[in-house]
């Protein structure tokens, strides 16, 4: 398989002194779609934030490598330039900065200096992508995420994903707060990204997103670790039976963080 490889090894992460991740191991290759599932409060979003370099999360042990390069040594913008992307669960509102200006700055920051995207080409690509995601055109001139509905914010994250075309994307609960129509559109966008090079880690605690996006690998997180991995059939069983059978199998009483097994 071509594309990039993201390797997460024995990752331990703290927030304000509390250990959330307690040794996560995960490898994602280009062309693969992985889903990380699990009940609330088991460390899924922490994993996403730690990979991108959220300022509140501190990695205390372990490593994250992208094509062998040490991601933890990189600043947040360098991680993006290396090919990482995180569709955030709660995107920030940036007053006074239009979505269009922001996207153009982003695209140009990912390109070589002197190789900025021509304006017309940018506009065309943005128009097409917005059409594809059934986004109202005036969003381009609205301030980034300011006053956006929950659904608009999620679509905007996927718009960015499709415009920036990263090598490796993490989608953090991209399905939360979406109605069924919006969920279909967002899934359509994500599926369009699928190719031999693109790697994707989808974090969700609802099975329903996986009705539209079929993952190659499914992982279940509990207590800050990946406790079970499998193929798409694992997601199906989770949908049918919930998480209790895993807890039983592993002897876990409370799956959330802070409840050490």
């Amino acid at each position: 398989m071509a594309g990039s490889t993201l390797e997460i090894k024995d990752l331990h992460v703290e927030i304000e002194g509390l250990e959330i991740l307690k040794g996560v191991n995960l490898t994602i290759k280009g062309g693969e779609f992985h889903a990380v599932m699990g009940p609330n409060g088991t460390g899924k979003s922490t994993l996403a934030s730690a990979v991108m370099g959220h300022p509140k999360y501190e990695v205390t042990k372990g490593s994250i490598l992208l094509d062998g390069e040490d991601v933890l040594e990189m600043e947040v913008d360098e991680r993006a330039q290396a090919g990482l992307f995180l569709a955030m669960q709660y995107p920030s509102e940036i007053s006074g900065v239009t979505t269009s200006d922001f996207l153009r700055s982003s695209i140009n920051s990912l390109r070589e200096e002197g190789d900025e995207i021509p304006l017309m080409q940018f506009i065309k690509k943005m128009d097409e992508t917005m059409d594809y995601l059934e986004i109202d055109k005036n969003m381009a001139q609205r301030y980034l995420n300011e006053g956006f509905s929950g659904g608009e914010k999620k679509r905007n994250e996927i718009l960015q994903l499709m415009m920036l075309e990263p090598a490796m994307a993490i989608l953090d609960e991209i399905d939360s707060g979406l109605d069924i129509d919006a969920l279909k559109v967002v899934s359509k966008g994500i599926n369009k990204m699928r190719n031999e090079e693109f790697g994707c880690l989808i974090i969700t605690h609802y099975q329903r997103l996986l009705d539209y996006i079929t993952p190659d690998h499914v992982h279940v997180m509990m207590q800050g670790r990946v406790v079970k991995s499998g193929g798409p059939e694992l997601a199906e069983r989770l949908e049918a039976e919930g998480y209790d059978w895993i807890k039983e199998e592993l002897g876990i009483e409370d799956e959330t963080i802070g409840q050490n097994a």
Binding site: E75, D77, A80, S92, I94, V97, S109, L164
Partner: peptide, 21 residues
């Protein structure tokens, strides 16, 4: 962090926030 996660440098991110403000 949000702006930088799209590849924008800290300086450029601050510039955007200032102009926006």
């Amino acid at each position: 962090y949000y702006l930088m996660s799209r590849g924008i440098s800290q300086q450029e991110a601050e510039r955007l926030v200032i102009h926006g403000f």
